[in-house]
């Protein structure tokens, strides 16, 4: 077992009075794909967003417990959230390109980091797009608006945009849920490729997808972590009845 990249200890989250996550503890290993599954509303997205503190943006959120990234507690007062998010990138369920050109979209992160050298930016943009398997499709239209891309292309461009900041961890919230099977296959292939260099956490509703792409799977139910382990084990011989019911589709 590799050394854990992320350790979560006793994490509890409230939206106002409503508890959305209840005392969650788990370890996420480096350079592997961890999948979060569970019925809608069980807190997968909420949990994912605690890993790069995107929940800070929502008013009335209360969080207790610890999240350690490379053994640093990211909820420590001394942590710089802005730099944390450069380390822990995120890809959203709905592709969300900026209303700018493809080039500007991908170059956004590096520019924010103070890179203004054209040559350097061009290299970064090209490498990122190549890593996201979309370079061939867009190399002739880099300066066209990103809004003109198809849904699947947009999502891969968003992945490229996240890669351009050179994160170590990539969080993906149902990245393929709005896509057709071919685009989904491309994204899955991409995830498989990316895990060589990145630690990936992915939320999915698609059981087959979880089984195909992930090394580890965590099953959530009503804000609690029910079961967590090797994907193969979870999908073949789960310990808990709830997990089995959900995976086999016997769930309400």
């Amino acid at each position: 077992m590799k050394q854990p990249k992320i350790q979560i200890r006793d994490l509890t989250l409230f939206y106002g009075e409503k508890m959305a996550l209840n005392s969650i503890s788990m370890e996420i290993p480096e350079k592997e794909v961890t999948a979060f599954i569970g019925p809608s509303g069980c807190g997968k997205s909420t949990f994912l967003r605690t890993l790069n503190r995107m929940n800070d943006l929502i008013p009335n959120v209360r969080i207790t417990g610890e999240v350690l990234v490379d053994s640093l507690n990211i909820y420590d007062k001394q942590i710089d959230v802005v730099n944390l998010r450069k380390k822990v990138g995120m890809v959203f369920q709905k592709s969300n390109p900026f209303t700018k050109s493809i080039y500007e979209n991908v170059a956004y992160g590096p520019k924010i980091n103070g890179i203004h050298d054209r040559k350097k930016l061009e290299v970064i943009v090209e490498t990122s797009l190549q890593k996201a398997f979309i370079w061939e499709e867009v190399k002739d239209r880099l300066h066209d608006s990103a809004m003109g891309l198809s849904g699947g292309q947009q999502q891969r461009m968003c992945i490229a945009r996240a890669l351009a900041v050179n994160p170590e961890i990539i969080l993906m919230d149902e990245p393929a849920s709005a896509l057709d099977p071919i685009s989904t296959a491309k994204i899955e292939e991409l995830i498989f490729e990316l895990k060589k260099n990145y630690t990936i956490v992915i939320v999915t509703h698609n059981m087959q997808q979880a089984a195909r792409v992930s090394d580890l799977t965590a099953f959530f139910y009503l804000g609690e972590l029910v079961e967590y382990g090797k994907t193969r084990k979870i999908f073949t011989t789960p310990d808990k009845k709830q997990t089995e019911d959900y995976i086999t589709g016997r769930f309400g």
Partner: peptide, 12 residues
């Protein structure tokens, strides 16, 4: 979503 995208990329 666009604001979130920007913030998630480490923009202030």
């Amino acid at each position: 979503e666009m604001r979130e995208a920007s913030l998630a990329l480490g923009a202030t």
